[in-house]
């Protein structure tokens, strides 16, 4: 550690003086991961952009942690000067996913938010254009949610080509041939 990560540690220290609750994790040289309370995001972004010179908004990602009933919005911000990439992670409720827009800070944030709204169903307060982007007349649940099952959807909507029905499962074929009954312990427990 030490010298190599001096700059990263310094940034972590500065962030801590203003945002006490931010959990800063130095992943490696040039990579910071910051966990943040969702309501602190706009001031934090503004602080990062204008005070710490993180001028480049790289990407906004949304990860569906369905088991926690939360979405994780990941704001990727980069500083060309410091050559440090910061991932700001905020968790929001999955039932009623809402977030404040960061459109005032970056022009192109709007497009990312528009896509996340469409693909994950997160509503961005203050973004005037959350209209249809990639999908057209979509009436199912937002497709990038983990509970949207593509195979199930395909089976419901499309027809499989004919002529491949004779395919066999190797494991099944073998167990059938040798009279092996494979127990199902998982379902037994439930």
């Amino acid at each position: 550690m030490s010298d190599e990560l001096k700059q990263e540690q310094e940034i972590a220290r500065i962030i801590h003086t203003t945002f006490k609750t931010a959990e800063v994790d130095i992943k490696r040289a040039g990579r910071l991961s910051i966990k943040l309370r969702s309501d602190l995001l706009p001031p934090f972004i503004s602080y990062l952009r204008d005070y710490l010179q993180f001028k480049h908004l790289v990407l906004i990602s949304c990860v569906d942690w369905i088991e926690d009933n939360e979405f994780e919005l990941v704001y990727h911000v980069y500083s060309y000067e410091k050559k440090i990439h910061v991932m700001i992670k905020v968790r929001i409720d999955r039932e009623n996913p809402k977030m404040q827009t960061i459109l005032p800070f970056w022009d192109h944030a709007g497009t990312y938010e528009r896509e996340i709204h469409e693909m994950n169903g997160v509503f961005f307060e203050g973004n005037p254009d959350l209209g249809e982007f990639i999908l057209e007349d979509w009436d199912n649940i937002p497709p990038m949610r983990r509970d949207f099952n593509t195979v199930k959807y395909v089976n419901e909507v499309y027809e499989w080509r004919k002529g491949r029905e004779d395919k066999q499962d190797v494991r099944e074929t073998i167990s059938k041939e040798y009279g092996e009954i494979i127990p199902d312990f998982d379902s037994e427990e439930k």
Partner: peptide, 12 residues
Amino acid sequence: ALCVTACPAHMH
């Protein structure tokens, strides 16, 4: 699962 074909007890 080819091993199962050779196992006399057809273990899983």
